[in-house]
Design a binder for these strands. Structure first.
Length: 223
DNA sequence: ATGACGATTTACT
DNA sequence: GTAAATCGTCATA
């Protein structure tokens, strides 16, 4: 992993929507103190647009001890604690003093999977890293990594993944129903069809999902 | 000092 | 589908 090309400051210094889409397919690497590396491909990201965005922690220009990292320069981690028990990790976007970020919501585990399983506890399959708080637990990311530099630092960084076609889908963000007109904006991005994306129906075994019957005339879609 | 709440997960009905 | 878990953070006083 460490032999791969690390993303530069320039890569991160973009608006959060562009950055979110660009992050899909990249590889998030966590180097533990003992040198072991845990890594996963980023398959789901959300963009938080800053002061104007009612769903963002920086909405209305809010600047507190907790969200300080969001106001910093691009290419740093913004790690926050929520619901009394969970940590979530963001990649800070834009330039210094512009509080935008991308929430990493899901990874496809690539390296250190046994260690991830151990950290997650119990038997875990496809849901090892399929959720913003699940992946921080799996990769040992907490307050100690808030503000960590992804460009210069050694404990958390992102590298370019294999090049290849990525079909990107988008949807409204998860868990921001309170954000009024911002709740419905399609600022969640994910790799189409990837089973590690959150909210995926799981099909155990080899039985494929039933093909959907075409809608008949005048019939309304349920989705 | 206090109270309300959350960019979630999990277990259970 | 519904609810509990669980506590740092922040606004208000």
């Amino acid at each position: 992993m460490s032999s791969s090309v690390r993303l530069t400051r320039r890569f991160y210094r973009r608006d959060p929507v562009t950055l979110a889409k660009a992050l899909l397919g990249k590889i998030l690497v966590r180097r533990l103190e003992d040198g072991r590396e845990l890594a996963g491909k980023i398959v789901e990201v959300e963009a938080y647009l800053g002061i104007e965005d009612r769903a963002a922690h920086s909405f209305g220009g809010r600047r507190t001890a907790r969200n300080a990292s969001m106001w910093g320069d691009a290419g740093h981690a913004y790690v926050y604690f929520t619901y009394g028990m969970h940590w979530c990790v963001n990649v800070v976007a834009d330039r210094d003093e512009v509080p935008t970020a991308c929430l990493i919501r899901a990874l496809e585990p690539l390296a250190g999977i046994e260690e991830m399983r151990r950290r997650r506890g119990r038997e875990r399959g496809v849901d090892l890293c399929s959720g913003p708080a699940k992946l921080t637990q799996a990769l040992a990311i907490d307050r100690a990594l808030d503000g960590a530099d992804l460009v210069e630092g050694g404990e958390l960084y992102i590298v370019r993944g294999a090049r290849g076609r990525r079909v990107i889908e988008r949807s409204p963000r998860i868990g921001v129903a309170y954000a009024r007109e911002w709740a419905g904006k399609p600022l969640r991005f994910f790799i189409a069809g990837n089973p590690h994306v959150t909210g995926q129906k799981k099909f155990e075994g080899a039985v494929p999902p039933k093909k959907r019957r075409p809608l008949s005339r005048g019939e309304k879609s349920k989705t």
